[in-house]
Amino acid sequence: MSHTLTPSPRQEIRRSSWWKRHQQQITPWLFLAPGLIFFTVYVIYPIFQSMAISLYEWDGLSPATYIGFANYVELMDDEEFYTSLWNNVRWLICFMLAVPLGLAIALFLNQTIFGIRLIKSLFFFPFVISQAVIGLIFTWFYEPNYGVIAPLLNMVGWDGWAILADEDYATYGIIFAGLYPQIAYCMILYLTGLNNISADQIEAGRMDGAKGWSLFWNIILPQLRPATFIAVVVTIIGALRSFDMIAIMTQGGPWGSTNVLAYFMFEQALSEYGYRMGYGSAIATILFAIMLVYITFFIYRMYRDEKRGL
């Protein structure tokens, strides 16, 4: 007589059916949980924390004092802030050159001849080198007397032009160095894109009399749309986080003329001469607001494309 110890079949069904009923809803959350927790702790929370710190004056050692929006008021009156902002814009615009240049190289390399794989990997090489190394080597290139480009400058009569010490051109010098790996990155994105181009459509296009420029513009480029999108996205991100190159090549100099918001923030909050946590956080908040515009656009586009089934 053991009917009291074993659970009745009814009960068992009910228990398992609760899990069965909710399984579909719970499982995705269980899988997402580790990511969500880490994202909240390491991304979401610090964003709000630095927004909060931006309302304080704090050197990281002494107690923080609440000063309201004084950091932002000061920022609006800070020449270096505007220099940095303007340099960010210059970075965004000039860095975009990496997309068409990467496409051009990809088209050039997209042929089947002996040894093309080796050549492709050589073209991809700049992206493999660390940004810090590229920055250092370009600094040597630009060296006004003994650098590699010094003889070239001498030929056109610009001898002794120190690009990185020239407030008007130093930023372009750094962007140029930054483009070197970025072009390679865009190139590799386009090369993979070119692999997936449908031969039928090209054939069909040719039958309809398309060739040269019109074949490229009307048949090939539309098929590269996903690659273009990714290339633009990574290039914008690359331009906005242009920090390492500046740290290596000029430290924001000469006299702050190559600063960008990210480096300016570092300089104010964390460098040897800084430790203005509140002010640095205010810069970070502004940079975040700028990024937010771009992120919103990005998410909106993804949403729209997904709806259209692209």
Binding site: G253, P254, W255, G256, E267, S271, E272, Y273, G274, Y275, R276
Partner: peptide
């Protein structure tokens, strides 16, 4: 430190 940072940038300029 902050004054030194601003000052030395100014001297360089």
């Amino acid at each position: 430190a902050e004054m030194a940072s601003a000052g030395m940038k100014g001297f360089q300029e």
